[in-house]
Amino acid sequence: MSKTKKIQIKAFRFNAETDYLPYYKSYEMEVEKNEVILDLLNRLKYEHDGSFSYRRSCRHGICGSCAIKVNGKPVLACKENAHDLIGLFGDELIFEPQSKQRVIKDMIIDKEDFWEKHAAIKPYVECDIDPHPTKENLISKEEVENILNADYCIQCGNCHYACPALSVNGDFFGPAAFVAAYRFTADTRDNASVERLELTAKLGQGVWDCVKCFECVEACPKEINPLEKITKLHNLQFEKNIAKSNVATKHAEGFVRSIKKHGFLDEADIVKYSEGPIGTLKHMKDALKMLKAGKIHLSDQLPFVDNMPKSKNLDEIQKLIEISQTNKL
């Protein structure tokens, strides 16, 4: 196999100061086996078009500047081997900015929304400290491990701009802000954890609006798994009694009620239970359609009607719930 590969690079081009619309331009390149995407960005600028613009700095996967999308996959350009991507996507690589809506020039975007949300969750340890301590303020190994790898975040924005919930809801904090929220909330020296948990519990902006698509997990170049931290924030809301009773928290907790009764989830009951009587009304149109099509099972919603399936050995399930349930709403 030859060590170099001849490929086409199709690059997104746009200059907010002069262009009315963005366009794509193709460049041919011989790519060496050990070249990373940042090398190709550099060569595109040096060898083909000096006006081509992108961010770069450390070249070591730690500053988070050179994050772009290649064929839709969020990458950190300095970390991603070009031949690996050619293996995945073939011999046409498409270079695009993280967000086409926020582009300033070519690969460079305005990350203001990212930084605003990051700042809003207080990404620092808030505590009263002695300005002249006589000894170090140490925390234990276990306390550090509880932060998981949330402190690896380099704020590249890959997860933020890969998040579909954020793309349709501008109020949503997004995965990077949640990772930071978890990182500092889990820090035992911090005094702002309640405030952060309340911020991230609020419907519309908080963790309950996460669609659980795992795009952020796939997008992170530091393998942080933001969704794991989002789940931790959900769990902490219940553990610290911050969770308020609302449609989302009742939906999560309502699973226990259904499983205890049937082993399965009672799909009709969980909507009724989570929404409450008034909230349930807005689902009536869909519910009637579903009833007509034979899609709804009922247990105790109507008298004398119970066609809910039940798990065999339901008593085992009930016993396990009784001895294993840890959280309450």
Binding site: N235, F255, I259, K312, L329
Partner: peptide, 23 residues
């Protein structure tokens, strides 16, 4: 598997991760 119960659908996991793992 007639004995099986609900997987928790990621929502039980938000509420009680240990219980969802046991089930």
């Amino acid at each position: 598997l007639e004995e099986a119960s609900c997987c928790g659908a990621s929502h039980l996991q938000d509420f009680d991760p240990f219980l969802s793992d046991v089930l």
